[in-house]
Design a protein around this nucleic acid. Structure first.
Length: 485
RNA sequence: GCCAGGGUAGCUCAAUGGUGGAGCACAGCAUUCAUAGCGCUGCGGUUGUGGGUUCGAUCCCCACCCCUGGUACCA
């Protein structure tokens, strides 16, 4: 069992988190918990992308200083994670001076290789997207699709460019051979065909004026700021000490890098699958091992958008149904490799059917049976560590990010135990004082404990409650875990 | 336009060249330890449309329609 360094995507903090962010946190966290159970030494990093121009604009709109604004919003993301029982080992902020220094170091390494050069760039620039567009990418009014009504600016300036084209063949080799593995397969193929169509160098700096003096300064050029993606990706490194001269940072970086897994949404795959490994190759640093790309949530079959007004606030959902209810929905009720639909109706359905009637009810009935029978269990040590090893199907599903399949293994066990109880009728044996009662209850308790252990990566709060309820020699019934709604 | 994937029961998804499966929802039966629950049974589909190959296609081929993603700096 080795070290396992996992990251989830660093969100823009120009707005509060929505349910898509919750999905990613939950997926990442369930992997973290699973790896821990298998004995890995796990480190989980998240952070906030604070150097984007979008943040400056959003702060201006609210009339707040940029730093105060990003600090405030970053806290909302941390609060969401906490609410979902997702624990980061580090939350690395992009505005942190330590991160700035680290990103400058990365820049200098690429520069030393000769992969950074100056070039005049002219193009149509959308301030909203903070991106250049070609005419073919714009709508009939010459505006970008994200920000209709917003005129694009003709911008010409001298920027620094990164020699991405140089790494085309290396990238193909690395991705095809799975040295850097992209999951799922169709995303890998998509990226490969994109690379094979020919890579162009991309701009990695902005003028100070355009960047509004926000972001990481380019080393030795006070007129330019580093383009946000170049530094944002480096949060994965700066958060574990890259570029610092302090001894504990040096050790930390050595210990954790490279990342074993980046968890991201499909919208930012190119940066992670192409730019990032190219930058690392240029800098002479180790490559991450794997990239897991999840899809998005739709809401009642529609895309989530501010204009539609159907953005779901995960905090509200958790307040109403509990963290484990949302975790369950995100993990069990959608495919990790396709857009999933969210609606409160569907959440309620899953809650009642699987959590209340399934898991919760089973725990209640076994607890009550034990209580009434005055059953006392033999306490044996280190029971739960044995359980996972026998759950081949479960582990296999986990290692392939098929969280829904992994949960269904557990729910099959639940159904099996329900049927077992129906068949054995312990409540009848209770009245006749039958000798078999004890062994039947022992089996039930053992199964409940196993279910709780398997549930830990998905529903940590619930797993803990069950584990505590069934830990002692005597078992008593308690309040329902998931009251029906 | 081009490339990739998909269109199967009300919903979410399996499956196979040979009389279409599961879970949820819904209904009935049985039961009472449990959160009106668990279990059992049932309801439910000319497998996107039109052709073709075949003794036989949902699965193979062709055309068309629809959906999703990609097509360079965008969660």
């Amino acid at each position: 069992m080795g070290k396992f360094y996992l990251t989830s995507a660093i969100p823009y903090v120009n707005a509060k988190p929505h349910i898509g962010h919750a999905l990613e946190f939950i997926q990442a966290d369930t992997i973290v918990r699973f790896r821990k159970i298998t004995g890995d030494n796990v480190f989980y990093l998240c952070g906030s992308d604070e150097n984007a121009l979008k943040n400056v604009q959003a702060a201006e709109q609210e009339g707040k200083p940029v730093q105060a604004f990003v600090d405030e919003n970053a806290k909302l993301f941390e609060a969401l994670a906490k609410k979902l029982n997702v624990e980061f080992d580090v939350f690395q902020k992009g505005s942190d001076p330590k991160h700035h220094a680290s990103s400058q170091k990365l820049w200098q390494l690429c520069e030393k290789t000769g992969d950074i050069y100056k070039k005049t760039y002219k193009g149509l620039y959308c301030v909203g997207c903070e991106a250049f567009y070609t005419k073919s990418e714009l709508n009939e009014n010459g505006e970008c699709f994200e920000h209709p009504g917003k005129k694009l600016e003709e911008v010409e300036e001298e920027n620094y460019f990164f020699k991405l084209s140089k790494y085309q063949n290396d990238l193909i080799k690395i991705i095809e051979s799975n040295e850097y593995e992209i999951v799922p397969e169709f995303r890998k193929n998509e990226i490969l065909s994109f690379i094979k169509s020919g890579l162009q160098d991309f701009s990695i700096s902005r003028s100070n004026t355009r960047a509004k003096n926000w972001g990481v300064p380019v080393p030795n050029d006070p007129t330019q700021r580093i383009y946000v993606w170049f530094d944002a990706l480096n949060i994965y490194q700066s958060g574990i000490g890259f570029g610092s001269a302090e001894q504990n940072d040096i050790e930390s970086y050595k210990k954790w890098w490279p990342a074993d897994l980046h968890v991201i949404g499909k919208g930012i795959i190119r940066f992670h699958a192409i730019y990032w490994p190219a930058i690392l190759l240029s800098a002479g640093l180790a490559l991450p091992k794997k990239l897991f790309v999840h899809e998005y949530f739709t809401v009642n079959g529609q895309k989530m958008s501010k204009t539609l007004g159907n953005v779901i606030d995960p905090i509200e959902i958790v307040n109403k149904y509990g963290a484990d209810a949302l975790r369950y929905y995100c993990l069990a009720k959608i495919s990790p490799f396709a857009d999933g639909d969210f609606s409160e109706e569907k959440l309620k359905e899953a809650y009642n059917a699987d959590l209340a009637n399934g898991l919760g009810n089973l725990v209640s009935r076994v607890a009550k049976l034990c209580e009434t029978a005055k059953f006392e269990q033999m306490i044996s040590a280190s029971k739960e560590s044995v359980h996972l090893i026998h759950a081949e199907e479960y582990s296999q599903a986990f290692s392939e990010f098929r969280f829904n399949d992994a949960t269904s293994v557990v729910w099959k066990k639940i159904a099996l135990l329900d049927k077992f109880i129906n068949d054995e009728k312990p409540w009848v044996l209770l009245k006749t004082n039958d000798q078999r009662l004890k062994s039947i209850l022992a089996h039930c308790v053992d199964q409940i404990q196993e279910i709780a252990a398997l549930l830990e990566p998905f529903l940590p709060e619930t797993a803990k409650k069950i584990e505590e309820q069934f830990r002692g020699a005597k078992i008593v019934s308690q309040k329902p875990l998931f009251p029906r709604i």
